[in-house]
């Protein structure tokens, strides 16, 4: 019966941090949907709120921050502000997260098998042997050679890429419906990143898991995701299908971001840089947050723009989008 609902619907999510210096609106009214087997790329630079969005979905926002408004519908049920123990039955079970640093997931003083079996038994009534078999199978699935021996190793005995595989394996243990991946390949080398992307893509296709891939790297998203949402200063400024957004960006920020990426057909030519830098979230200028850096800004931009439908499945938050 729950299959009629998309895996995750986020509606007008607001996550604020109540600091002594003032209220930091890290995430300020964002909405998106991810369905089974779909990979959504959440793109933004540091401070855009992309990681806090991931943490909000996982229920991992610590004080002074909290989800101040909006709904997070997981298969139709609102999980925003769910009590800790109810959230705990979901987290690591139906919803899992992969962090940039695999040591966020792994306990350095416990063997891999201890950690994996613990995660399985926390959510399932199975025997130790059964849990161990499952752990071994999943290690094999993420491409770790000789999983039987590797189960007995400690995290420090793995290389960075292997460690990230283990943390992906742990996320997959209970066959979750949704995975939130926060820059999982940023710290890895190119050839190792290729290996991880290959595994992730294969897993998503095979098990129809919904995935949110949080990153600052547009090039990774281009190859991996189905849809993109671009974040700037706590808001989504543009979203749509990957090809649409990257080939015909509507928002001046998206356009600037794409222009900033070195590419082979622009060799030696100065990059189309965005002037200035991301404003502090503590004192955002009124109106459009991108106004001060935007070549198209005028007086209309002094009032905050709303997210508007530019084409089917294509939204933009701008008064002067780059329409064809």
């Amino acid at each position: 019966m729950t299959s009629n609902f998309p895996t995750l619907v986020v509606e007008d999510l607001r996550t604020y941090f109540y600091t002594k210096a003032g209220v930091v609106k890290a995430v300020d009214g964002i909405s998106f949907t991810v369905d089974r087997g779909e990979i959504l790329g959440l793109v933004g630079e540091s401070g855009s709120g992309k990681t806090v969005t991931g943490f909000s979905i996982m229920g991992l926002v610590d004080p002074p921050g909290r989800v101040a408004g909006g709904r997070i519908l997981f298969k139709g049920d609102d999980i925003a502000g769910l009590p800790d123990d109810a959230m705990r039955t979901l987290r690591g079970n139906r919803i899992a997260m992969i962090f940039q640093d695999p040591m966020m997931t792994l306990n350095p003083v416990l063997r891999i098998d201890t950690q994996m079996i613990e995660a399985i038994k926390a959510h399932n009534a199975v025997s130790n042997d059964e849990a161990r078999r499952r752990a071994r199978d999943i290690l094999g699935r993420v491409g770790i050679p000789s999983p039987d021996e590797r189960l007995k190793a400690y995290p420090h005995q793995f290389s960075g890429g292997m460690r990230q595989r283990v943390s992906i394996a742990i996320a997959l243990l209970n066959d979750p419906d949704l995975i939130v991946a926060d820059e999982p390949t940023t710290a890895l080398d190119v050839t190792i990143q290729g290996q991880i992307l290959y595994e992730v893509q294969k897993l998503c296709r095979e098990s129809r898991t919904a995935m949110i891939w949080i990153t600052h790297d547009l090039s990774v998203i281009a190859g991996l995701a189905d849809r993109i949402s671009v974040m700037y200063a706590g808001r989504i400024v543009e979203s749509g299908q990957v090809d649409e957004v990257l080939d015909r960006p509507l928002h001046p920020y998206t356009r600037g971001l794409i222009g900033s990426v070195p590419s082979e057909n622009r060799r030696g030519v100065p990059l189309a840089q965005i002037p200035g830098m991301t404003p502090s979230l503590l004192n955002l200028p009124p109106g459009c947050a991108f106004r001060a850096r935007c070549p198209r800004a005028d007086n209309a931009c002094l009032t905050p723009p709303e997210m508007t439908l530019a084409a089917p499945g294509r939204e933009v938050r701008c008064f002067h989008p780059h329409l064809a």
Partner: peptide, 24 residues
């Protein structure tokens, strides 16, 4: 060749990643 093939690029969409085997 492996290094260049592994680089994610803006103009390559929905690609199938073909990894180099092995660790450094």
């Amino acid at each position: 060749q492996a290094l260049l093939a592994g680089v994610p690029r803006l103009d390559q969409r929905h690609r199938r990643f073909e990894p180099v085997k092995g660790e450094i």
